[in-house]
Amino acid sequence: MSQKTEKLIDKKGLRLDGRKPDELRPIKIEVGILSNADGSAYIEQGKNKILAAVYGPKELHPKHMALPDRMVLRCRYHMAPFSVQERKSPAPSRREIELSKVIREAIEPAIFVEYYPRTAIDVFVEVLQADGSTRCASITAASLALADAGIPMRDLVVACSAGKVDDTIVLDLMDTEDKVGSADVPVAFMPNLGVVTLLQMDGILTQEEFENAINLAIEGCKKIYTLQKEALRAKYISVKEVEE
């Protein structure tokens, strides 16, 4: 936050990677790419490369943790040691433990947990390369992996960040913008229901900037939602074609 020398937005109003303030990074999504998992998805968003896999519903061990009226959703967000500039120890950091919790709480509202009492679903997220807003891309991929596993859901959960750099509210922060910028607002959204399932913020924003950032992030979510649906269709339509 202290390296004020670097300009994040140039005179033409373009960002470090040439994007406009309200522009997303290029996104590539694939569904069903791991053969052992019940559901999986891979997302590339800018230089982010993230894998998500779902195992379950399955029997829960230890058994006393099972709930009689609903399933237990477990989530692990983890970064590969080679995913960042300086090697990250593979042991879970405090940040990863917090993110595992908020990601779980972001996708749980979408799942009909009461359909599978006494069971567990495990969601594993592996960040292979990190380039800012990894929690958002992780949620986008995790909810696709759940859909791929055939888990009944109210909607797909899609996430995108917004933030403030050089006094401008921008969409989809990349690594440098997150580190040097003055605020970061990750938002997860269920477009069909119009509700927010993850919201965090750090930095300094006025009420107006805060509202603008959330609204911008939601617009970004809606765009990624279209790509999510396309990715799901791409897998299942091609399967159907092979059968024919």
Partner: peptide, 24 residues
């Protein structure tokens, strides 16, 4: 009166309006 940190918790959701009202 600036907002400097936000954290949503729990397995439910909020509408954008609820969030803006809460901030106020």
């Amino acid at each position: 009166g600036n907002i400097c940190a936000v954290q949503k918790g729990g397995s439910g959701y909020f509408t954008p309006k609820q969030i803006f009202d809460a901030a106020q």
